[in-house]
């Protein structure tokens, strides 16, 4: 039981996909311009991560080791496409908000990374918890980065202006600003970790 809880919580802090594993940085750079985008991408990625982790841990004994990567990619891409079609058909509002980010999940290396590093070696329950924890960790990281960027880059949080008369620093709205924010946050979290040990 204790180890199961650990599988869930490790993705949030100890092995946070963005700040510790440094996986999926490319979509993080592109998406984290506003908190709404960050939440959308995080939730969509969490769904895919959950689904693909569960399915891959179910079929892991059936897939030969040497061709596992193409098999994983096909499974993940199928999952993403199903989600995209369902979003378009049943929730066009959400679909418009997430836009290109849903299909982009296919190439998000967190999903493939967890399939490769965890789901293909562990049972259903642990893989489910691992996927959920990693997804939540990714979402929280995105929210943190995008909150900083949205505030500095456009003076707003979730579209609401916080401080009147605050002159936005445009560089934080650009990908170069994302690199700065992620770099500083990574350094900050590393410092915290080193202090602890």
């Amino acid at each position: 039981m204790k180890s199961l809880i650990k599988e869930f919580t490790k993705g949030i802090i100890k092995e946070n996909p963005t700040f510790v594993l440094a996986l999926g940085l490319c979509p993080t750079l592109a998406v984290s311009v506003s908190v709404a985008n960050g939440i959308g991408m995080g939730v969509a990625a969490t769904f895919v991560l959950l689904g693909s982790s569960v399915i891959i841990s179910l079929v892991k004994n059936f897939i030969p080791n040497k061709i596992r990567i193409p098999c994983f990619i096909v499974i993940i891409a199928t999952f993403v496409t199903i989600i995209e079609l369902c979003l378009k058909a049943y929730s066009p509002v959400l679909d418009r908000a997430l836009g290109i980010y849903v299909p982009l999940i296919v190439v998000n290396c967190i999903v493939l990374g967890r399939a490769e590093a965890f789901a293909c070696k562990n049972n259903l329950l642990s893989s489910f918890l691992d996927g959920l924890g990693m997804g939540i960790g990714f979402t929280l990281a995105l929210i943190l980065i995008s909150a900083i960027r949205e505030f500095l880059g456009s003076g707003q949080i979730l579209g609401h202006t916080l401080i009147k008369g605050f002159e936005p620093v445009f560089v934080f709205g650009m990908p170069s600003g994302a690199l700065l924010v992620i770099g500083l946050l990574l350094g900050f979290f590393n410092l915290l970790r080193n202090r602890k040990t």
Binding site: F62, I63, I67, C71, V74, I75, A77, T78, I82
Partner: peptide, 16 residues
């Protein structure tokens, strides 16, 4: 194996 996975995926996708 790979063909089988692709066939299942394609079937699922066309159904959806």
């Amino acid at each position: 194996t790979l063909a089988l996975i692709c066939v299942i995926s394609a079937g699922l996708l066309s159904a959806v």
